[in-house]
Structure formats: C-alpha cells, structure tokens
Design a protein around this nucleic acid. Structure first.
Lengths: 216, 216
DNA sequence: CTGGATCCCTCACGATACTG
DNA sequence: CAGTATCGTGAGGGATCCAG
C-alpha cells in the first residue's frame, strides 16, 4: 500500500503521499465538520466511487489521520473521525480553500454545494480580527436546501450544519451561488439586498456585520 | 484538459482541481525557491516522467499559476516562474510541509534530498517570533552535496540554494538526515554535537541559535 | 545541450452491480 | 448500512526518440 511514492525525503512530499491522492482532502474536509458514517461521507461526496472511498478511508486510517470507531449498541454502527493529527490539517484545508476560492468563478452546470463545504467556506472566510469587536451574533445561511449556521461570540466562530442550535438566529440569510460574490467582497451588503442577490429575515443592518465578519 | 472534476462548487475543490494532480505541488515547491528551466525542474524532481512534467506545466500555465518566459538572447531559453497567484501558495506549501514533516521518520532507502526541498524545509521551520530578538546571522547548511544558505536579519529569513552570497556564513553546519531530528527539536544543539549528528565550523553557540530560529 | 514528443505498459480511478 | 466485486478507461511510469 502506498506504492505511489515520490522518492524524496521532504515534509511536503510526505504530506502529498498521505493526503494528495484524489478525494483524500475532501474526505478530510467533511470530517473536519463532524465525524461521519460511511453513508454520510458518500452523500457529501456524491461523485466518489464507493471503492475509492473505501480505499481512502483505509489509507487515512493507516496513516493515523482517521480513526474508525464503533458506536455503542444498539445501532453498533461505524463512525469515522479525525485523529488529532488529522484535525491539524484544518489550517491547511482552510488556507487551500481560500486560495482556491479565488478561482471559483461561477458554478459549472453540474456543480453542487454541500452543507459541509459551506461550513468550511464560512470557517475559511472568518476574520477573527473583525470578530474581536463584535459581541455575540447568530446567523443562519440558506442556499437551496443547504442550511448552515454560524455563531460568533468573543471573537470565536462556531459553525455547523443545519439550523442554529440552542437559540434563534439573529439573521437568516437566503441566497444562491451569488453568496460567493458577497463573501468575496465584490458586492457590499446594501447592493446585494437591492439586487436581490440575497434575502434576509431579521435586522437588515446585520448583513453588513456578516460581510465584515466573513470575507474571502 | 482538466476533465478530472469533482462536481462541487467549493474553494477547496477548485484548489485540488488546480494543484491536486500528482507532482503539481512539488513543481510549485521548486518554483517557490526560484524560477527554473525545464531541465532544472527535471533535475529537482528526478522521478517525474517528462510527459507529466510537460503536461503539468501546461495545466499550471493555463490555470494562471505559472508563467512561461523567454530569456533574452543569446540563450533564448525558457524559464518557468510563478505568477502572483501561484506565489500565494507559499503559505499553503509551508503549512503542508510542516504537517507532513511530522510523518517523515527516517529516509527510505531510495529517498533523496534536493536543494530546493531543503530551502523550503528551512522556510517551513523558520519561527519569526524567535527571530525578532536576533540581530543578524548567516548559516550555511550542508547535507552531502546539497548546500543551502539562510540569512536572518530584522526578523526576516532569506534562504536559497548554494553557499551564502555577499558574505561569509557565521556558522557552517554539516549534517545528514539527522538534521530532521534537530529541526524537530528531538535533540538539542549540545547533544547533536556530542553525538556527532552535526558538525559545525564556527562558534558552537550559534548552533543553539539555529535550533531556536528553526523548529518544525 | 535544452525542451520536449512518442510509445507502450501498468495500475489507479470511475461506474455500476452486488452482498453480508 | 457498509462496504466488496467486477470491469473498462485513461492517467501516470519509464524508456526512447527528435527538433532547435
């Protein structure tokens, strides 16, 4: 296993040997959001062949990046989660995501948005500096049937899949692929509302707060 | 070209579509050190098939990551260099290199060290915080016939291939693969000297400075 | 010599069907 | 639900060859 070697004694080489294979980093992306079962991973990566998913999980486990854990009875199901070493890829994934976002352009005809990718996008875009002056605010972001939430408090972001837990969001933002332009700072909050790129439920001013907190 | 798509509208997906193919990030690594000709790249990546190198360069050029430039006569040769967008991968490459270095272990039988990978390793390991208190110091690092230099001044690192330019190094460090353990902080400067893991020419105290400035 | 192009072979990947 | 089995395709590996 791992026959695809590059023949160099170098940290970057080792990294691409471990997570450079096709689909590997996307599996890590989804596991950064939350531990998942095989089927959840498959749903989040609809185009991955099942044998490739299976192979990658074994490779990532052998590399100490992913752990396979059995859930307590009665379901006795399997969950995959990142080890501490695997979770240390978060900075890399966020940085790569920011860099790649600059080439995003418009969605291709067959491209989808998944909840996990949207959570990672929010984490990528989060600006801790701007958040330091912000007290406590909850957003819910809806793109089609993809719903994610973000809670900023004490300069720290908590983002996850689904509606905001524990408390009602201060602002609900509904949008589409145009959210990319908003996050990229290509249109400001007012313009986005005026042109119908986004619709909000809640105090409109909070959309400007959102664009200040999240910027790709 | 670029038919290998993942079907998701996501920054990370776009990033791996652009630089996730085999060898791509290693080409970027070497170009981060300096612009290079085709043959230089080939020498720095001895195991890359020439058709793959050629294909990658075209893909990277099409993606706006690499630029092809013709040198002035009389040699009229071609140089590949990173665009600004491509150079923005430096943080990602250094972070990935740091992460992967933790899985380095010992060199495999057929693994080599190249000058460019060593320069990137030094940049990965550089701790700007520790350097802020350091005035001005030049190192030359020799591993077999691989020679690189590092100059730290005003908290800024300048590292490149070959002997230190402009001035004699304050300390010449000769070592082998054991340099990894030193950079990882697994052995301190004194022990490394005592056990013969490294040999120096110059004031021995400067080796402790080196281990403070560079830590993986 | 540089900067590739071409050939062949293998294996990883992609797609789909199937199973405990 | 959580994978394994099967099979076709094409990218990558390796050697060689060629034009400027």
């Amino acid at each position: 296993m791992g026959k695809r070697q590059y023949g160099q004694f170098c940290g970057l080489v080792r990294a691409v040997e471990l997570v450079g294979e096709r689909w590997a980093l996307l599996i890590v992306r989804d596991l950064l959001v939350s531990p998942k079962r095989y089927t959840d991973l498959k749903r989040g990566l609809p185009r991955i062949p099942t044998n490739v998913l299976s192979t990658r999980l074994k490779e990532l486990e052998a590399a100490g990046i992913v752990e396979r854990r059995l859930l307590p009875r009665p379901d006795g199901s399997v969950v995959y989660e990142l080890t501490e070493y695997g979770a240390d890829l978060e900075d890399v994934v966020l940085a790569l995501g920011r860099w790649g976002a600059r080439s995003l352009g418009d969605p291709r005809p067959d491209e989808i948005v998944t909840p996990d990718s949207m959570v990672i996008a929010l984490r990528s875009a989060f600006r801790a500096g701007a958040a330091a002056t912000e007290s406590d605010v909850r957003f819910e972001l809806r793109l089609g049937d993809v719903v994610v939430h973000a809670h900023v408090a004490a300069g720290v972001l908590t983002a996850g899949v689904g509606a905001a837990p524990e408390a009602e969001p201060d602002l609900v933002i509904e949008s589409g692929p145009a959210i990319r332009a908003v996050l990229a700072g290509e249109v400001d909050a007012g313009t986005a509302l005026d042109e119908g790129l986004v619709a909000v439920t809640g105090p409109k001013e909070l959309l400007a707060v959102f664009t200040r907190l999240f910027r790709l």
